[in-house]
């Protein structure tokens, strides 16, 4: 069936131009602040907002800042740890949810979706109360636990999207050829859903390294991550180092997101919308 998407006639042409112009303006709106931030990070002026020439000074001073080094290390530990745990658990639960029916599945499914839709300030408060009442020492461990609590859900959603297109006859074929269950999983199932798993892992890593609110509530002394460091720098007053650090983080996470989408797309089908 031919789907006619064009607006016809002279007035249609006007509408089309307005629509295009609106689309263009919307995309400029989305990228304008990012461009401003990156441009300012190369601005030689320390105090005035005016342009005083190009410099890499702020990036160099980032490299020499010990507190930022420590924050980067914490960020990598938290993101790395929570990604590994949530990717393993999330993939397992995705397999269970796509392959099996069991009583209480709907309730469990809802529980699995809740961390995605709950406002992050509420989740942050919940976890803070839990850790305080459990007399847990707030620090990297509590941050990782909290990040896993929301990342399992994101990984599960991404892997399930991949599993939904899985051709079960491929597994049957492997078993016809005398592969045992473990061999079938390791040689057939796992490689086929690997793009989904990697995409989910990258998403988890990105969400974890970018998270501010939940980390803010569940961190203790000495466990500042990069977003926490940026936040306290902003609160103390805007300095050009923040622009450099923010631009750097923004570019890195944009690359990660791009990679995550390429992996999840896996060469076929449309972009998955989580």
């Amino acid at each position: 069936m031919k789907r006619e998407r064009q607006l016809k006639g002279r007035r249609g042409r006007w509408l089309r131009h307005i629509l295009t112009a609106h689309g263009l303006v919307s995309y400029i709106f989305l990228y304008f602040p990012i461009v401003v931030l990156v441009v300012f990070s190369f601005n030689a002026s320390r105090y005035a907002s005016a342009w005083r020439g190009f410099t890499l000074e702020w990036y160099v001073s980032l490299l020499q800042d010990a507190a930022i080094g420590a924050a980067l290390k914490n960020s990598l530990i938290v993101a790395g740890g929570s990604t590994v745990i949530s990717t393993v658990f999330g993939t397992m639960v995705a397999l269970a949810m796509e392959r099996y029916d069991f009583s209480g599945k709907l309730a469990f499914d809802s529980l699995l979706y809740l961390p995605i839709i709950i406002p992050d300030i509420v989740m942050a408060v919940m976890l803070l109360i839990f850790f305080v009442l459990a007399h847990a020492q707030l620090g990297l461990v509590t941050i990782i636990i909290s990040h896993v609590a929301f990342n399992i859900s994101f990984v599960a959603v991404v892997v399930r999207a991949r599993l939904a297109y899985f051709d079960l006859s491929l597994e049957e074929a492997a078993q016809d050829l005398y592969a045992n269950e473990w061999q079938t999983f390791a040689r057939v199932t796992l490689p086929l859903i690997m793009p989904g798993i990697l995409g989910g892992a990258l998403l988890a890593f990105t969400l974890s390294i970018d998270d501010f609110v939940i980390t803010f509530f569940t961190s203790g002394p000495g466990s500042s991550t990069l977003p926490l460091r940026i936040y306290s720098m902003v609160k103390l007053g805007v300095t050009p180092e923040i622009n450099a650090l923010s631009s750097f983080m923004l570019i890195v996470s944009m690359l990660l997101v791009l990679l995550s989408f390429v992996l999840r797309k896996g060469g076929e089908g449309e972009i998955e919308i989580v």
Partner: peptide, 8 residues
């Protein structure tokens, strides 16, 4: 942009 750092 949607999946990048909200704070930034």
């Amino acid at each position: 942009p949607f999946w990048t750092n909200f704070l930034i």
